[in-house]
Design a binder for these strands. Structure first.
Lengths: 158, 158
DNA sequence: CGCTGCCGCCGAATTATGTTCGGTGCACCT
DNA sequence: AGGTGCACCGAACATAATTCGGCGGCAGCG
């Protein structure tokens, strides 16, 4: 799983940038034959290095104009309670992602909703009513930038 | 930009699940002709509803075994300083994404590094030395789950 | 030092897919 | 009721994915 040479790195970089470019384009960009390229891409997926290909959708286009982060404290802090809460979150369409944390807060939830009114309603309906949620703090997100191309770290050439 | 019928929703859902399935598969799954499907996908991209297609890479495969969230306070809190800091963050390979926030903290940074030692080094080298960073709190991430399929909100059928 | 076996890359042939374009039906407007 | 426009469809053409046999380089062994 740790073996990843320059060619693999280049493939991973290109597919993070555009996952829908053709295998021929990809091969040409990297400088290998299409058949070789196909083989390596398949190996990366089989190895678990590439876990999937996903379209990125504009949140405004999905009628979600407000994003927020909600830092939640959970009690009692047991595995069962956390797992239940995770499952609960996963079923909420407003939730984009959830972080289970070490430290002050237990869970950080990234949500995207229609507007501030919907945010308020969401918090009241989905968090206040939960018994395991003893407190939460909400921060509205002004801007969220993602670094789409993630490269290997450490000794660059394995 | 807000017009998105059932077929568009289905396309968006499918492409979020697997962006590399063939246009024919996609069309068959949804129940329309490949040519129609191609047209709609192109329209969605042209309209800005689909912003891109990205491969998802396993962080451990990239030699990043530790993730953390760093809540940063910036002073002075001016646009110029924030923009500079954003640009700075964007250039750091360890940074996965950054949130600009309203409320207690100003910026929340999601990082992925090799191990806890590398996390410590990263914080010391990249944050402590910055003049505009007046304080930061770091939370190690035990688990991060993403909701990959994001559906339109509000009135479901536009 | 040379031989041999193995692994990965390549290129052509086959199969499948993307893409274009003209026609058709439905719905809406008048 | 007639006309107009839009979206969808299906066949034809261009392009790409996939397979597979063979070649070359490298390593390990004799």
């Amino acid at each position: 799983m740790a073996i990843m040479d320059d060619i693999d790195s280049a493939i991973v970089r290109e597919l993070q940038t555009d996952a829908r470019q053709t295998n021929r384009e990809l091969a040409a960009r990297i400088g290998i034959a299409p058949s070789t390229c196909l083989e390596r891409v398949r190996a990366l997926k089989a190895r678990g290095a590439i876990t999937g290909y996903h379209a990125e959708i504009s949140l405004p286009a999905l009628n979600r104009h407000v994003q927020a982060l909600v830092a939640v404290q959970i009690r009692p802090l047991s595995r069962a309670v956390i797992d239940d809460f995770k499952t609960y979150l996963y079923g909420l369409p407003e939730v984009l992602s959830a972080f289970i944390l070490a430290g002050g807060d237990d869970v950080l939830v990234h949500v995207a909703v229609q507007d501030v009114e919907a945010l308020h309603a969401f918090l009241m309906d989905r968090f206040t009513k939960r018994r395991e949620v003893v407190s939460f703090r909400t921060s509205v997100i002004f801007e969220h930038t993602r670094n789409r191309v993630v490269a290997p770290l450490g000794e660059p050439r394995a």
